[in-house]
Amino acid sequence: MTALKADPKPVLFFDSGIGGLTVLREARVLMPERSFIYVADDAAFPYGNWEEEPLKRRIVDLFVTLLAKYDPEAVIIACSTAFTLAGADLRATFPDMRFIGTVPAIKPAAERTRSGHISVLATPGTVKRAYTRDLIQSFAGQCHVNLVGSQNLARLAEDYIRGDVKPDAEFLHEIAPCFVSEDGAQTDIIVLACTHYPFLANVFRRLAPWPVDWLDPAEAIARQARRLVPLIDGRSTQPDFAVFTSGDPGFATRRLMQGFGLSMDQSVSSPHNQGDFFL
């Protein structure tokens, strides 16, 4: 009698909200044999409102439970803020786990720019992180790099994808500082350094004062995950599902998850205190 093969382990996605869905879309194409678990720490959203140390502790503590509960093959941190803040601590705390991070796509932007003027549109946390400054120093030393930290775009993107579209003026206010024209040269590449932002790419293109290349990191993150996640025979029979730490993401979000082929795991809830959670 032939023994049944065990299902491949799932790949776990982690984000503060629904921005990581842009990466999940690409990862499914490259890793069709895997199932996926999407974890949104919406009880703590937006991460930009947190002080660094409490947020770092929260993320690491949350992964103690997530890894024990779901035993994934690998973890994709689909959030620049989370990875640039807690990535090193996660790898040190869980040395046997593969963590694929999200960092601002500064290197490819520096390779592609013709004008030498790049803007990095990110959350305030990512903008102020030493990790981001190190990327600029290492890969874009010959470029003029304009860091733009938006306090509101992640929230606007979450509203937008759920169908709650705000006036153009709100979006334009957030992206206007990205467009720099000096000494006859203009910004020609804008790095979307938050996985929420690609949801708004068509809005950005429509409102931009001149054409630029909006650099979406999703495909590059998925390619890196494919390189690190073993390719195996067979295909998972397990459904993809989503976990929200609030325990109550609301009807619009549930419908969105269904549209992405994700069922809802009801076993996660979080009290109103964003510093605590239960799984």
Rank of each mutant, 00 (worst) to 15 (best):
G184M: 10
E51A: 14
G19N: 02
D42E: 07
D248L: 13
F277C: 03
A86N: 02
V29I: 15
D89T: 13
A44C: 11
S246N: 03
T84L: 14
L67W: 07
L147P: 00
A169Y: 09
E158R: 01
V148I: 14
E53V: 15
A74D: 05
L30Q: 12
S236Q: 01
K9N: 14
D42N: 09
F14C: 11
Q274G: 08
R25C: 10
T187W: 01
L200D: 01
E111D: 14
D188K: 02
T113Y: 04
A44I: 04
A109F: 07
R114W: 12
S267F: 08
V127T: 06
Q266N: 13
L231I: 08
Q266E: 11
P95C: 15
Q186A: 10
P198Q: 00
E170A: 10
S270D: 06
A105V: 00
F277S: 01
P46C: 07
A208R: 05
A185V: 09
K56H: 15
H196F: 00
L200R: 00
V120T: 03
E73P: 04
L62H: 03
Q186P: 02
L135I: 07
A252T: 09
C143M: 06
A218P: 04
G101M: 07
P108T: 11
Q266P: 04
P239H: 10
Q151V: 15
V191L: 05
P271W: 13
A86P: 05
V212E: 06
P211S: 14
L121E: 06
D15M: 01
P124S: 10
R205C: 10
A3G: 08
P217K: 05
A43V: 12
R235G: 11
G48H: 02
A88K: 14
A88Q: 15
I59Y: 03
G101R: 00
M97S: 13
L200K: 05
R206G: 08
T195D: 01
G275N: 09
R98C: 11
L156Q: 00
T132N: 10
R25A: 09
G163E: 06
L215N: 01
D71K: 11
R227N: 15
K56M: 13
R98G: 07
N146K: 09
P124G: 11
S80E: 08
D276C: 14
R58K: 12
V243H: 00
Q142M: 11
V120Q: 03
A86Y: 02
V75C: 07
S80H: 08
Y47I: 05
V180A: 11
A110W: 02
T245V: 09
Y38W: 07
F171E: 00
T2Q: 14
A74P: 01
C143F: 11
S246C: 05
A252M: 10
D7Q: 06
W210S: 09
L55W: 09
I190C: 04
P8Q: 03
C194T: 03
L135Y: 10
R235F: 12
D71C: 13
A208Y: 05
H144E: 10
R34M: 08
A193H: 02
I190R: 04
C194V: 01
G20N: 02
G116A: 05
R162W: 10
D96W: 13
